[in-house]
Amino acid sequence: MTTALIWIIIALGLGCVVMRRRSVVVALVGIQALCVAALAVALVPSRPSEFLPAALTLVARAVVVAVLLVIAIRRTRHSLPGGDEVVPSSRLVIAGVIIAALVVLVPSFGLASHLAEHGAVVLVATGLALLVTRRATVMQVVALLVAENGIAVAAVSVPGGLPVVVELGVAFDLVLVVTVAIVFHDRIFGMFGTTDTRMLRGLRD
């Protein structure tokens, strides 16, 4: 079951690269976060009791972040980046190159599952690819979330899991950062009438 979940999580990450509409991408990353939480919950019976709060934290994180993103896109409905955004096939190629480079560069780091190790690295690389190829502010937040979901895959796959304090703290910090990003998203939309980050290129030397 865990193997299937990790493959689904990776596929959802790549879906975020390909899909154009913000609502679809937000739905995909929300489902991805829930799958990561499901992965953690599936591991609870084989783990010490301290792992349960960490798994529940991931569930809560997935729900809160998804709600925040839905609120953000509902408040800026008509703001889509222009047509000269990188086309899906090119985005996929760029993601493929970054993924291949990171998978080669990052050595095995001791997880029992090689799929979890590679999956984590693939998702961090997918996040980086999303960051450089997508221009809407919400998409850049999604990029961060995809990378964080990758790290969560690695974290829950460590025998025993990460310390619950770190899991709680990471989830809290992520919600905080996403909240601040959505404040920026609103202010950028209010000032520029769009959430296209190409408008944010005024500062040069």
Partner: peptide, 18 residues
């Protein structure tokens, strides 16, 4: 934030290798 996400990956790697 992206930089810190990368750093977090390193922390998980370090923790997992222990």
């Amino acid at each position: 934030s992206v930089g810190l996400t990368v750093a977090l990956l390193g922390i998980v790697m370090l923790y997992a290798s222990g």
